[in-house]
Each structure stands twice: as C-alpha cells, then as structure tokens.
Design a protein around this nucleic acid. Structure first.
Length: 420
RNA sequence: CGGGGUGUAGCGCAGUUGGCUAGCGCACCGCGUUUGGGACGCGGGGGUCGGAGGUUCGAGUCCUCUCACCCCGACCA
C-alpha cells in the first residue's frame, strides 16, 4: 500500500473524549473510528490486525476439526423463550426490534440458542456426532455503561465455537483440547506470557468455567495468579475451598487486574433438552446432546494488544498481528532515492512481505513519527544518505539500532523473521 | 441506574463581574523557501458556541429542561 493512496491521517493529539490508552492510541493512529460510546468502526489498519487475529484463531479451530460458518444477527423470540432467556430481567443487554408486521425479533448478543436449534437439522444419530462449528460474528449488547475504549463495547466481534458431543467424556476430551488450542492462539498473538487459564464461575452444569485472562491494568477483572503453575482464580470465586480444589499455593498468589479475552463453558445437556436436540445412540435410545461453548473476544484483543504493546511513541505490534511488516519511507524527492524506494517496494511486495510505502512528500520527522505511532515492526528508510552508505536503513520498531543493508538482505532477513 | 466531570471550526483548547466583528495552535487551500525527527514566511477559507426554551437593551457567559461523551460505582455467559 502506498501511503499516498491511503486516506488515513494520524493525529498528534489524543481525542478529548477518550481516556483509555487503547482508544487513544488506536484513534490517533487511525486504526479505529468512534461512532458513539462503545461503538467503533474498524479502519483499514485496524481491520488488518483483526483479520490477522482471526487467521490465527481460524487455524487452531480448523486443526480441532471445527467448521466455520456464519449465523444471523436477527433472531427469533420463540427460540429464546424456550430457554427462558428472552425476558429483559433475565438478560438485560438485549437490543430488540420488530418486523414490519409487528413480530418481535432480537439482535444477536449470543448465538447459543439459534445454532443449537439449527443443529437439530443435522444431528439425529450418534453417527452425526461429535460436531463442531464456529464463527466470527458481531455481537450486540446493550451495555448499561460501555467503557475502556474497545475493551467493553456495545458492538464487537467475537469468535464463538460450539461443540456437540455424545457423552460427557467425549465432551471433556474436546474441551481440554480447546484449552490447549486457546493457549496456543494467545501465544501466537503475542500475549502468551501474560495470558492464563483462570477458574471462574461455572453456571448450572459445572462448578467452574475456564476463562483466559490477560494481565492488564485496563482489564475489568481481578484474578489471583499462581505464576509457577500458570493458573489463576477469578476473584468472583476466590476462597480457600477453591484454592484447595484448584491446587494452587495460596502463599504465592498474586492479585492482579486482568482482561477476559476468552471464556469456555460446559453446558451439559440442559440446553439440548430445552431446545429438543437429541440423537439416537447405538442401542437405539434417544439421548440429549452434550454442549460446550467457547468464546474469544476478537476486537477486545485488539484493545488488549494496544494496551500491552505500546511505548511513548505509539503502538508496537508483534509481528504476527501487525497490519504491515515494513514501513518503507523515502526521504526527499531525488530521482535516485525515489527509484530505489519504488524498486524495493515492488521487490518486497513480490516476495510476499506486506509493506506500507510512505511515498508522500513529507518531511522525515513526520514519516518517522507515523511509522512509530502505527507500530509497524520494521522501518526501512531510503535517502541520499542511506544510498551513499550502501543501501537501505533498517530499524526494528522495538529497538533503537539501525543498520544499512542491501535490498536482497532485507528480503532475506524479513522472510526469515516471518517464518520464525 | 446513582455520583462526578466535559461539550466553543475537522482535531486540541482559551474566552474576566453578561458588552462591540468569538479567538489561539494543529489540520486545510494558494504562492515561495525547505527536506534525517512532526519546518518556515506571506496570503486565504472554515463557527446556528451540543440542542430547546427563558431572563435581558444585549447571552458562548445567567436560569430551566434536554441530548451526547468521559470517569467512579452498581452491572457483566
């Protein structure tokens, strides 16, 4: 992408109506646009990060034999009445509307009911199970108070996975494999060192659910972390009894603020029974399907990443989620410089390295400041000075060191770092 | 939903006890000089002062209502 073709402008000053670090940085850098409280549009760079996160998640979901689909945002009242969750007192975050003929509809805040209802079309026999389906969908939740930028919003993207199993034992195997998959996902995204499996309230069927909490000052939750074991307990269920059950050492628990980036639940068969999802087993008798649901807050992760990977100059994206790998900046309008920059841009693009090429006639300081605010992992500068020194100046966002390299060396270095 | 705060140009802000044509910086447009850390000179354009009502000779400024946004709390499969 040439910067001259890119409509986004960065800002020097943070918006006055945002206090959270994630919103201030993401808006200054032009990754998101605020429409109203808790409602943010994803601009091209923000969307790229989100797509990168989704791709990392998608790979792990597929590896666990889950199939991607996309459910609807408009939902039927009857479905939610059958599980007693249409009532505004029971679920107070519903956005509701009506069809032209007066029929009530709900706007998706979750898809547990509709997808389970839909699965009745495909699940009849033990031969049809297990079945795993996931999606990336926009959830609409009428939060009384949106807060912390994109970390708690009224409209957000969530990855939700649903598992349909024949027995609690079969369910448990999948559940455990998803815990591993989630840890792998957060590792790849760059939050592996600060994201922990956390015991939280379980609901009707199980004593605990498992949350994935990223240690983060802007988070809303408080967890007690046993760093040695890599296990935490959510404050909401924290007591001596739970400490004993979970098997952590109370003396080394750290009380920390954290953001819930994932949460997985075992539902048992209750919802299947409510909605009528049964299968015929090998003996010919009807059994309710065992359900599980597994969420990851995709846009919340964008916020957590911004909170986590930033310095006084701006964002600092981990390689795997960065909107572009290279920020290529040409300095001055000298013909040799422009040609060298154009050539490198073409070469990197051709070798599959994503580049944002700042070809604007702006001054060096502005280009450097933008490269830093955007948080692009590598900055390559082409100028009279760099050409005289023998090539291109390469600098990592996370470092202050620069070195002069040839075009081929850049290609090799970056290809290697992308693979590693 | 309770408490606190803020709304003045695209963005960030100033505007005295009510007073004259509502300012500053950035951004934007034109010309010129600049080009390794957000340059400079000269000349421009842009405002129903969040909205409605009221008090007054006169309201950005005072009063009433209202909307939006931020923060704290409550809430949070």
């Amino acid at each position: 992408m040439r910067r001259s073709h890119f409509f986004i402008k960065t800002r020097k000053q943070a918006p006055a109506d945002e206090e959270s670090k994630n919103a201030q940085l993401l808006i200054r850098a032009g990754f998101i646009h605020k429409d109203s409280a808790g409602v943010y549009a994803l601009l091209p760079m923000g969307l790229k990060v989100v797509e990168n996160i989704k791709q990392i998640i998608r790979a792990e979901m597929n590896a666990n034999h889950a199939s991607e689909l996309l459910m609807t945002t408009l939902q039927r009242k009857e479905l939610w009445e059958s599980t007693d969750r249409w009532d505004d007192v029971k679920v107070d975050i519903w956005f509701k509307s009506k069809l032209a003929n007066g029929t009530d509809i709900g706007l998706a805040w979750s898809h547990e009911e509709p997808i389970t209802e839909m699965m009745k079309e495909f699940i009849a026999s033990y031969r049809d199970l297990p079945a795993y389906a996931y999606q990336f969908q926009t959830k609409l939740r009428n939060e009384i108070r949106a807060k912390s930028g994109i970390m708690r919003s009224r409209e957000f993207i969530m990855k939700d996975l649903y598992s349909y199993s024949r027995s609690p034992a079969e369910h448990q195997v999948f559940y455990d494999s998803i815990i591993k998959a989630y840890l792998k996902i957060f590792q790849k995204i760059g939050l592996g060192d600060s994201t922990f499996v956390t015991f939280a309230s379980g609901g009707a069927f199980t004593e605990f659910s498992h949350e994935f909490q990223t240690i983060c000052e802007a988070g809303e939750d408080v967890v007690y972390l046993d760093r040695q074991k890599g296990i935490a307990i959510n404050e909401e269920v924290y007591n001596d009894d739970v400490i004993a059950k979970v098997g952590v050492d109370k003396s080394r628990l750290e009380k920390l603020k954290a953001a819930e980036v994932g949460n997985i639940f075992s539902f048992g068969t209750h919802k299947s029974e409510q909605l009528g999802l049964y299968f015929t087993d090998e003996q010919g008798s009807q059994q309710p399907v065992v359900l599980g649901s597994y969420g990851i807050g995709v846009t919340r992760l964008l916020g957590v990443l911004a909170e986590h990977f930033a310095d006084d100059k701006g964002l600092v994206w981990p390689q795997n989620v960065a909107p572009y790998t290279v920020y290529l900046a040409s300095l001055g309008d000298d013909i040799e410089v422009v040609k060298a920059a154009d050539d490198l841009y073409d070469q990197l693009e051709q070798s599959g390295i994503s580049v944002i090429y700042d070809d604007r006639p702006e001054r060096p300081g502005e280009k450097f400041a933008d490269a830093e605010l955007f948080g692009i992992p590598y900055r390559v500068v082409v100028s009279q000075k760099s050409l005289e020194a023998g090539g291109y100046e390469l600098k990592q966002r996370s470092s202050t060191d620069t070195k002069i390299v040839s075009a081929n060396e850049i290609g090799q270095l970056l290809t290697k770092s992308l693979q590693g």
